[in-house]
Amino acid sequence: MALPKTMKALVAYSKDSYKLEREFLVPTCGPDDIIIKTEACGICAGDLKCYHGAAMFWGDESQPEWVKPPFIPGHEFLGRVVETGDNVTEYKYGDRITADQIVPCGKCRFCRNGHYWMCQPHNTFGFQSDNNGGMAEYVRYPKTAVISRVPEDMALEKALLIEPYGCSKHAVDRAQIQCDDVVVISGSGTLGLGMVTYARMKNPRKLIVLDMKDDRLEKAKEFGADIVMNPGKENVVKNTLDLTDGYGCDIYIEATGHPSSVKQGLSMIRKLGRFVEFSVFGEETKVDWSIIGDRKELDVLGSHLSPYCFPFVIDNIENGNLKTDGVVTHMFDLDDWEEAFELASGKKGDLKVAFKF
């Protein structure tokens, strides 16, 4: 079946110019490529921070521009195969698939030693013109895309969480949770909730979740948190110290992207504790590094993307071990992208907001 020549797409031309195009060219399928018809695409905090001009995307006096405009945003997407290149044998028309955000080169040092998610060129869907994202009717998967099959009967509201929950899983895996650990997860948005439901599978001694919104804390309890606290209403550092005989939590996972959450974590984590930083920040964060070194000798670990996580996440969303109910709160037509971006900010209490095609 011949594809149309043009499609509807949201296009970022600069940090000050995002436009809905109705006649954007449909991607061409090369001999090693796959073209999918997009089924849906979630809006990530990274998409929002890029839209609002964060320097880590658009550059500033201390860092170069990372994005490559014009590009189509969106990396939390899935769809069905509508065209394959001559060299593609594993996938066929109609297959339902998704892919990791990273498009590894397959040649650099990191790709060769298995750390493909840290690929040196670091091309990703949704931020560069040669790897356009899912806020469009059609998307091209190149040869090196890390593709996973999506079950035919998986509800769209669940399938949309494969990519964010993959990121959640990697962050929790970095924390190396043991059964006698007191774990604090700061932030119970979509990614935080993914961490909560997966961390619950690790069965820590206590799973504590922090958020400024009480409705999100209720969802965290539903997903497996033992204790929830609102830093805007109570002294969460003192409470955590009181709960741990003054020592502090064993593990702190930061999933808010707010500088105050970093300082909060350094105050409530015990000596020799493990601090996992997941978030994308919209501004620089300053902390007293003597806490990390001289005072507490902490392990500070970063978490990036979702390497090797999709198969586990897909299986455990499907069997119900990873809870998803109520996380996708709104789906929009791409025509209403400005309203969707506004709700995706969480200002009105929404969690995951997505476009449905």
Rank of each mutant, 00 (worst) to 15 (best):
H122G: 02
I177W: 02
D33V: 08
G79L: 02
G346M: 04
V81M: 01
L210T: 03
M135R: 05
T144C: 10
H75D: 08
A354C: 00
D288F: 08
R174W: 02
D215F: 12
A40K: 06
K219P: 06
I97R: 03
T89C: 00
P231F: 10
H170V: 06
S17I: 00
C108D: 07
L334Y: 07
L10H: 02
P69E: 13
A55E: 01
D315I: 01
K68F: 08
N123C: 01
E90D: 15
M268S: 04
G30Y: 15
I35Y: 05
P311E: 11
Y18R: 04
T98H: 02
V81F: 00
T38S: 08
F125A: 07
T84Y: 01
I292G: 05
N321S: 10
T6G: 03
K296Y: 08
P231S: 02
G302P: 13
E61W: 04
D335K: 12
K158C: 10
L3P: 12
D242E: 12
I269D: 03
M118I: 15
I253R: 11
I314M: 06
V81G: 03
E218Y: 13
P4W: 08
L156Y: 10
H52M: 11
L266C: 03
W117G: 00
Y138N: 09
A344L: 04
N113L: 09
G59N: 03
D226E: 14
M56P: 01
K37R: 14
C105R: 06
L241E: 03
C249E: 14
F341G: 02
Y116C: 03
F125R: 06
P27I: 11
T285S: 07
C44H: 07
S303K: 11
I72H: 11
W289T: 15
C309F: 11
V103W: 04
A40R: 06
W58Q: 00
Q63F: 04
Q176T: 11
E284R: 13
H52I: 02
P69R: 10
S345G: 15
Y308V: 13
N319V: 10
Y116Q: 04
R96Y: 10
W117I: 13
D95V: 05
I162F: 05
T98N: 04
D181M: 11
D130T: 14
C44E: 09
N321E: 13
D60H: 02
K169V: 15
E338Q: 13
G30N: 15
E21L: 14
M154V: 01
L156G: 00
